[in-house]
Design a protein around this nucleic acid. Structure first.
Length: 595
RNA sequence: GCCCCGAUAGUUCAACGGAUAGAAUAGAAGUUUCCUAAACUUUAGAUAGGAGUUCGAUUCUCCUUCGGGGUACCA
C-alpha cells in the first residue's frame, strides 16, 4: 500500500469519525507538499468545511490531530489556510523504499489472457515519399503509447497501415517512367524511399508547369486542372492498377519494394516496430464492398456521374465522397475496409488510431460511417489526435522543400552527440564502435525526448536552425544522470559495498524527497495510459532525475562511513536508476552505462 | 461562410478548480583537493483582452482579438 493510499484511507476514516461524512478514500488525493511548507503530503480540507461547520483552519487541525493519534505513519502536521500538511514519520520511508526495491518491474502491471486487447495503429506512411519530422512524432508517440498501454496491463497489438496504392503512388510511378531513365536505388546509391520521393516531387513540378501553361492559354485554374494531360495519365494509371494491369502492377511492386527497404532502415534506427502490417492494396476492396453494400441499404447514394456519397448532414457533418465517379476508392473507403479486416483478425476491445489532428474530421466521419454500416465498435474508436510539428517558417511542405527529413535528422542528432561526447572526453577509453553506440543512444535520446515531452495534443515548434539541446530538460540530461548512477553502482561493487540493512537509519530530507518521488511512478504510468500521454512519463523522468541530482550533490554515497547510511544511499541509487530506465523505456529511449 | 483546436517569462515547454503560476534555455552571479560539472546553487522575468460561475479560475461558460487546422473526385 502506498503512502498516498494510507493517508487517503486514514483521512477518510477521520472525517467519518469526526463529522460523520462518508468520503471514499479514492476521492481524496493527497498532493506533494510545496517546498516552502513543512510536510510531505498535503490534503485539502475544503470538502468537509460545510459538514464540520467550522473554519478550514479548525477542520485541518482536527483532522491533523486525529491522524497523529490514529495513524502511525503520521509524525506531525501543520495547517495553512485550508491545506493540511502532513509530515510522515521519517523511518516509515525506509520500508517504502525497500518495498519498491523488492517489486519486480516496479510501476508496471502485467497483462493476462483476459486483459483488454488494444490495437494501436501508427506510422501509416504513404509509399510516395520518405518519412519526415511529422512522421517521426507520429512513430514515437505510437510506439510509446503502445509501451505505456502494455505497462498498464493491456495486451497490445501494434499495427501499421501502409498507404501503398492510390493516385499519389501513380504520380511517382508515372514520373519515374517518364523521366527516370531506369534509375534504381542501387544505380543511384540512394535509399529507395528517397528515390521515389524525388519522382513525386518531379511529377508535381511538371504538373504545375502544365497548369500554368494551360492557364496562360486562357483556361481557369479549375479548367486547367480538369484538362491536364499529366493528371489524366495518372488517373488512367490508377484505373489500370485497380484493373490489375500486369505492367502497372509490376512497376508498382518494384517501386514499392524500394520504398519498403528504405522505410525498414528508418524504422530500425528509430527503434519502432509493428506486430502486424496492413496494406491498403489488400484492404481497399473490402471497403469498396462495404460501401456498395451501404448503397444497397440506402445508407449511401449515387450521383448522376456515378460517384457514391454519404449524406451526413443529419449528424451535423457534410456530404462525404466514398467512391469516385470512375469507381476508384478514396481514403475513407480504404479505412472502412482496413477496420473490417482488423476486427476479423483480432478480438479487439479497443482501437486507437495515432493520426494527426488535421484528420479530426476524417475520424469523426469514419466513426459515424462504421456505426451506420453496422460495426458495433465504430462509435468507440479512439482517434489519438496529435498536434503538428511546426517550423519557424510555418507548416512543412514537401513542395516548398521545407520538410525536415527523418533520416537526415537522426543522422545529424547522432553526429552532434558524437561531437559533444568527444569534446567532453569522458569516454576516451572506448573504441570507435563503442563511442558510436553511445552517440546513437544519446543523439536519438535527445530527439525522442524533445518530441515526446510535449503534450501530444498540442502543436509544437521545431527550429532546424537551432539544434536540439543536450542540456536542461532533455533526454541526454536524464541519460547522463543514469550513467552517473550506474558509475556509482559499478564503483560500489568494485569496492565490495553491498546493500545491507538500512531500516534503522532516519533518512534526511533529500533522501525522503527522492523516495517520495519514486512512489509517484506507478500512478504516473497509469495516468499516462488513461490520458494517452507519454509526456507525463517524460516529465516524470525529468523530475525524478532532477531530484536525484540534488541528492547526489548533497549526499556522499561511496565516501559515506556509516554502513547503514551507505546502504540506504546505494539502495536509492539502484532503485532510482532502474526507475529511470523503466520510464525511458516507455518512451522508447535507451539509457547508456557510460557517457 | 461554417466547423474544430490553440494563445502562459525574450524563446521552447509545465501546472486533477487550490497555497506566492513551475522548468529549461538565453541574461547576471557563484560551486570542482570530493562518487562523471552533459551537474549543482543564487538571481531577474509570463497567464492575449473583457464579462460570468466559485470560498477560490491558467484551468469551467460566454464574447472579442490573434494564430492554426478542416470543410477536395489529395492521402
Amino acid at each position: 500500500m502506498s503512502v498516498d493510499n494510507i493517508i487517503s484511507a486514514a483521512v477518510s476514516r477521520a472525517v467519518k469519525e469526526l463529522y460523520g461524512v462518508d468520503t471514499a478514500a479514492e476521492t481524496i488525493v493527497p498532493q506533494a507538499t510545496r517546498k516552502e511548507f513543512e510536510g510531505n503530503l498535503t490534503v485539502m480540507v475544503f470538502p468537509w468545511v460545510k459538514a464540520a461547520r467550522k473554519a478550514p483552519e479548525a477542520v485541518g487541525a482536527e483532522i491533523g490531530e486525529w491522524l497523529v493519534k490514529n495513524e502511525p505513519a503520521v509524525a506531525r502536521y501543520n495547517v495553512v489556510k485550508g491545506f493540511l500538511n502532513i509530515v510522515i514519520e521519517p523511518r516509515f520511508w525506509n520500508g517504502v523504499l525497500s518495498s519498491i526495491a523488492e517489486t519486480p518491474r516496479y510501476g508496471f502491471k502485467e497483462a493476462t489472457a483476459e486483459s483488454p486487447l488494444v490495437m494501436v495503429e501508427y506510422s501509416s506512411p504513404n509509399t510516395n515519399k520518405p518519412l519526415h519530422l511529422g512522421h517521426v512524432r507520429n512513430n514515437l508517440l505510437g510506439y510509446s503509447l503502445a509501451e505505456i498501454l502494455k505497462a498498464c496491463g493491456n495486451r497490445v497489438v501494434k499495427t501499421n497501415i501502409v498507404n501503398d496504392r492510390g493516385i499519389h503512388i501513380c504520380k511517382s510511378m508515372l514520373a519515374w517512367q517518364k523521366w527516370g531513365n531506369g534509375a534504381t536505388p542501387e544505380s543511384l546509391g540512394v535509399k529507395g524511399d528517397h528515390l521515389i520521393g524525388d519522382y513525386y516531387v518531379a511529377f508535381d513540378k511538371h504538373y504545375r508547369a502544365e497548369l500554368q501553361q494551360l492557364q496562360e492559354q486562357g483556361m481557369s485554374k479549375e479548367e486547367a486542372e480538369a484538362a491536364s494531360p499529366l493528371m489524366a495519365e495518372a488517373r488512367d494509371m490508377l484505373r489500370r492498377w485497380e484493373a490489375g494491369d500486369p505492367e502497372v502492377r509490376a512497376l508498382w511492386q518494384m517501386m514499392n519494394s524500394w520504398v519498403y527497404d528504405g522505410f525498414d532502415q528508418t524504422y530500425k534506427r528509430m527503434g519502432v516496430d509493428f506486430d502486424k502490417i496492413y496494406y491498403e492494396s489488400q484492404t481497399y476492396l473490402e471497403g469498396k464492398d462495404k460501401v456498395l453494400e451501404g448503397l444497397d441499404k440506402g445508407i449511401m447514394y449515387r450521383k448522376d456521374d456515378g460517384s457514391v456519397w454519404a449524406d451526413l448532414t443529419a449528424d451535423g457533418l457534410d456530404h462525404k465522397l466514398l467512391l469516385r465517379s470512375d469507381g476508384t476508392s478514396v481514403y475513407m473507403t480504404q479505412d472502412i475496409g482496413t477496420a473490417k479486416m482488423r476486427f476479423a483478425d483480432y478480438p479487439i476491445d479497443k482501437m486507437i488510431y495515432v493520426v494527426g489532428n488535421e484528420q479530426n474530421y476524417h475520424f469523426q466521419v469514419l466513426s459515424l460511417l462504421l456505426d451506420k454500416l453496422g460495426f458495433s465498435w465504430g462509435k468507440d474508436l479512439v482517434h489519438f489526435s496529435y498536434g503538428m510539428v511546426e517550423l519557424p517558417s510555418g507548416k512543412m511542405k514537401s513542395r516548398e522543400g521545407t520538410v525536415v527529413d527523418a533520416d537526415d535528422l537522426m543522422e545529424s542528432m547522432v553526429a552532434d552527440a558524437r561531437r559533444v561526447s568527444d569534446e567532453m572526453g569522458k569516454i576516451q577509453g572506448m573504441n570507435d564502435a563503442e563511442k558510436d553506440a553511445v552517440a546513437e543512444i544519446v543523439g536519438l535520446g535527445a530527439l525522442k525526448y524533445f518530441l515526446l515531452k510535449v503534450d501530444p495534443r498540442k502543436n509544437m515548434m521545431f527550429n532546424p536552425e537551432e539544434s536540439i539541446d543536450f542540456n536542461g530538460n532533455t533526454g541526454p540530461f536524464i541519460q547522463y544522470a543514469y550513467a552517473r548512477m550506474r558509475s556509482v553502482l559499478r564503483r560500489a561493487a568494485e569496492a565490495g559495498h553491498t546493500v545491507g540493512d538500512y531500516q534503522q537509519v532516519e533518512p534526511n530530507e533529500r533522501e525522503i524527497a527522492l523516495i517520495q518521488r519514486l512512489t509517484d511512478f506507478p500512478s504516473v504510468v497509469s495516468e499516462a495510459g488513461r490520458t494517452y500521454s507519454p509526456a507525463l512519463v517524460a516529465n516524470y523522468a525529468y523530475s525524478l532525475v532532477k531530484e536525484y541530482n540534488q541528492f547526489y550533490h548533497d549526499c556522499p554515497i561511496l565516501r559515506e562511513e556509516n554502513p547503514a547510511v551507505l546502504s540506504l544511499r546505494l539502495a536509492l541509487t539502484d532503485v532510482t536508476s532502474r526507475t529511470v530506465a523503466s520510464a525511458m523505456s516507455l518512451l522508447g529511449i535507451k539509457v547508456p552505462e557510460r557517457m
